[in-house]
């Protein structure tokens, strides 16, 4: 099939970007969306042009490195699906497909479709861990964790850190991401000793990074590839209030 990609091209963080059109032939329905971009890049090389910079690694929906705004939606037309898991059969011959980077003040553009998401790492750095050194662990089964709690913790621990929640939010809020890590750890007995400090420090960092505030529109949970629900944000808010009172 043949499609026209309209792709955001921007040379560097400071330069001005534009949407450029590329008519692309030879696309097959079985190609993943990223393979179609690979294909476009091979055509660009043949024409001696610079390739489109975009991000990926695992290409199986788990590493969270890919992230594209496709026709106005984070990761494209399907819910709970990463861009690398999207296939060209979701488009029609002759379609025009607009591809843009994540847009958020806290995710500055590096080049073309590549953004800097290190703000997420800095949020984790402020408490997304359990302060125990290697070599100090007690016997694993000495601590019983009910299945319901382990499962609920896993539901949010599944976050892949792609940033679709931020990209799709009109406020560019990172509440879903931050809540997922806080709740993953705070639900577990191992996470209790640091629970209050964790909520306060991580949310403070989230604000310091320039993410917007959450108004619970629910847009994020629709796009989240890991299917994390906004109930997680409500839970974080609750924990925040308790931490303020008790912490």
């Amino acid at each position: 099939m043949k499609v026209t990609f309209k792709i955001w091209r921007q040379d560097s963080p400071k330069s001005k970007g534009v949407l450029k059109s590329y008519e692309t032939d030879g696309i097959s329905e079985d190609m993943s969306f990223l393979e179609a971009l690979d294909h476009l890049n091979e055509i660009l090389v043949a024409k001696n042009e610079k390739v489109v910079a975009f991000e990926y690694d695992c290409r199986e929906g788990i590493c969270g490195q890919c992230g594209l705004f496709i026709n106005g939606r984070a990761h494209g037309p399907h819910e709970h699906t990463t861009a690398c898991q999207l296939h060209m059969r979701s488009f029609k011959d002759g379609d025009t497909i607009v591809v843009e980077p994540w847009r958020a003040a806290a995710f500055p553009i590096i080049k073309d479709l590549v953004v800097d998401r290190s703000a997420f790492d800095r949020i984790i750095e402020k408490g997304g861990y359990i302060s125990a050194k290697t070599g100090t662990a007690p016997e694993a089964n000495a601590m019983l964790i009910p299945k319901e709690i382990a499962d609920a913790s896993m539901d949010v621990a599944a976050c892949i850190g792609c940033g679709a929640c931020v990209a799709t939010c009109k406020n560019a809020s990172a509440a879903l991401f931050t809540s997922a890590k806080i709740n993953h750890l705070n639900k577990l007995p191992q996470g209790k000793p640091e629970q209050h400090r964790r909520v306060l420090d991580m949310t403070a960092q989230m604000e310091a990074e320039g993410f917007g505030s959450c108004t619970l529109t629910g847009a994020c949970e629709v796009e989240c590839p890991a299917g994390i629900s906004i109930a997680s944000i409500a839970e974080m808010n609750n924990r925040y209030v308790r931490a303020k009172l008790l912490g």
């Binding site: 009910p146 299945k147 993953h184």
Partner: peptide, 22 residues
């Protein structure tokens, strides 16, 4: 065996039985 202890301590939500064991 000590590695499982380590990862549990670090907060890995391994699958559990209803009774709470791994």
């Amino acid at each position: 065996a000590p590695l499982i202890d380590h990862y549990v301590q670090q907060g890995v939500p391994f699958a559990r039985e209803y009774g709470g064991v791994l």
